[in-house]
Simulated scan of single mutants.
Amino acid sequence: MNLALIVLVDGISYAGWLFLVAIGLTLVFGVLRLLNIAHGGFYAIGAYVAAYAIGVAASNGFGTAPQLLLAFAGAAIVGGLLGLLIERTVLVRLYDHPEVLTLFATYALFLILEDVTKLVFGGGSLYAFQPRNAFGTVEIGTLNYPVYDVLTVAVAVLVALGTWFVLNRTRTGRCVTAVVHDREMSASMGVNVAAIMTGTFIVGSMLGAFAGAVTAPKIAVNPGIGVEVIVLAFAVIVIGGLGSIGGAVIGALVVGIARAAATHLAPDLAVFTVYAVMAAVLAIRPYGLFARPMARKI
């Protein structure tokens, strides 16, 4: 029973982090039909900005709350500005071209962003453990678990609920949904499709950078952290169904619990678990668990 509790808690904690990493990627794909490899670069930049902000705030005597506020706000703002710059200068020129070209473009942008982080922050590691240590631990059954990790799950739940509310209960969200289903019809009904697409990419970039900021107090922030993240995020959205927000939630839970179980029961296989789960799901549901029905042209 204790092992089952450990697997469940670790799995849910990891799933919360995975969802934060994947939500921006699946949102951009759902609206722009763009598999944004540069998402890993936004994540890395968000982590670097957060680690730097936390270090500066801590050295000046600020408490835990101001440290996190500066980290999260700074990462989201930088991510949004970079997203605006990239969408307006690069991606807007490629929307009418084959999808493979935009894929190559975002991969090139990812490499550029990786070099930008090295140029700005150097090649060493940044550490920002202060907020995570300050929150201490909480007892969950027989486990002592970091409060910061529990709060990460709570943040993921709030982001999921906020995304659902915006998409389903606001006029902007309905416009986004309309653009997802039919851009030409949406434009004919007066929806500013270009603004929706630009805004969605900016929000996706901000969410990617925010995920990096949330992660910064849990890791050593160093070059290359965006590489693994983009692979994991891609696995989550493929399992859940490309472009599906609910699918991203389920995909994160499936991957999180499977990885936690493998880590505790068969550590040597843990690295392959994500890919094994993805292969198993795609063998049964080639378009993911919650992929939207595709219209067939006759």
Score class of each variant (00 low, 15 high):
E184I: 05
S186P: 06
S186K: 05
A187E: 15
S188K: 06
S188H: 04
M189N: 10
G190E: 08
G190F: 08
N192T: 03
N192D: 15
V193W: 09
V193Q: 09
A194M: 04
A195G: 03
A195H: 05
M197L: 13
T198I: 09
G199T: 06
T200L: 06
F201T: 03
I202F: 05
I202W: 05
V203E: 06
S205F: 07
S205T: 04
M206R: 04
M206T: 06
L207T: 01
A209S: 13
A209P: 03
F210T: 04
A211K: 07
G212R: 02
G212C: 03
T215M: 11
T215R: 02
A216D: 10
A216P: 08
P217V: 06
P217Y: 10
A220L: 05
A220P: 00
V221Q: 05
P223K: 00
P223H: 02
G224Y: 01
G224N: 01
I225W: 02
G226F: 01
E228Q: 02
V229Q: 11
V229I: 14
I230A: 01
I230L: 09
V231P: 00
V231H: 00
A233E: 10
F234N: 05
F234A: 14
A235P: 05
A235M: 07
V236Y: 08
G240S: 11
L242R: 14
S244M: 10
S244D: 14
S244C: 09
G246D: 15
G247S: 12
G247E: 13
A248T: 14
G251R: 09
V255P: 09
V255Y: 08
I257Q: 09
A258D: 10
A258C: 15
A260F: 11
A260M: 08
A261T: 14
A261K: 05
A261I: 08
